[in-house]
């Protein structure tokens, strides 16, 4: 069964239609890259999967968005529960102004978990998964804001992993990072694929080519082509995709 599925989705901001009849299926334990020029709707579409657009007053949606076969826009879906399952990492690292430790356990404390052993274990496990443990294990009580940009981003990924989601949405997770930190985040995405379904929005096409199994090209609110990344970057079927990936757009 597909992990994520969208069927005939339209999204409006007021009278403005920003997503036009998009359907897509995403397999479990895969990395899917969303690419396309600014304003093509890829971030809006990504945010449908954890209902982040709900905060926008003029947002309106039609169609179906499913996770594990369940429509997440059903009335009886609890958004808080949904977001435990769907983690999100943003472009700019956004750690809380708290210690490294408290950043990781934040979600667990909200869930009411107080057992120190469980919290400690989760901190170690999440930081190890995010390839940050070795760098911070002796300074867990230090402020997260003292970490470098790249470390902060991996901390945010660790914070996401701590609540054990099954899907991770990433909106330009490495675009504010230097090449070394960016490469670490890419390696991490590659590792995490074994246990999570990852969807990543990126403007960096080489990054999309390196980390993803499938790539979806969006243009003016439409999904132009979704195929194996290898095909998108060697022999795309649609001319607009070819023009975009070869840099001959517009």
């Amino acid at each position: 069964m597909n992990k994520l599925e969208a069927q005939n989705v339209n999204v409006y901001y007021g009278a403005n239609k920003v997503i036009n009849d998009i359907s897509i299926s995403i397999k479990p334990n895969s990395v899917t890259a969303f690419i396309g020029p600014s304003g093509c709707g890829k971030s809006t579409f990504l945010r449908l999967f954890n209902r982040m657009n709900d905060y926008i007053d003029i947002f309106k949606m039609e169609g179906k968005v499913e996770i594990d076969g369940k429509n997440i826009y059903d009335k009886n879906i609890r958004v808080e529960e949904l977001r435990k399952q769907i983690g999100m990492v943003f472009q700019k690292p956004n750690p809380f102004p708290k210690s490294i430790y408290e950043n990781i356990v934040y979600g667990l404390r909200i869930q009411g978990i107080k057992d120190k052993n469980i919290l400690d274990e989760t901190v170690e496990k999440s930081l190890k998964q995010a390839a940050l443990w070795e760098e911070v294990k002796d300074k867990l009580k230090n402020s997260a804001l003292a970490l470098s940009g790249g470390q902060q981003q991996r901390l945010c990924i660790a914070r996401t992993l701590a609540v054990e989601p099954t899907v991770i949405l990433m909106d330009e997770p490495a675009s504010a990072l230097d090449p070394i930190s960016s490469a670490k985040v890419e390696e991490l995405i590659y590792e995490l694929k074994n246990n999570y379904t990852i969807v990543i929005v990126t403007h960096n096409m080489q990054q999309a080519a390196r980390v993803s199994d499938t790539t979806a090209f969006f243009y003016m609110g439409e999904l132009i082509e979704h195929d194996a990344t290898k095909l998108i970057f060697t022999n795309p079927k649609n001319e607009r995709t070819q023009n975009y990936v070869t840099g001959r757009f517009g």
């Binding site: 970057f233 022999n235 070869t246």
Partner: peptide, 9 residues
């Protein structure tokens, strides 16, 4: 230039 698609070919 990391050529792709038709450029790569």
């Amino acid at each position: 230039f990391n050529p792709v698609a038709v450029d790569l070919r």
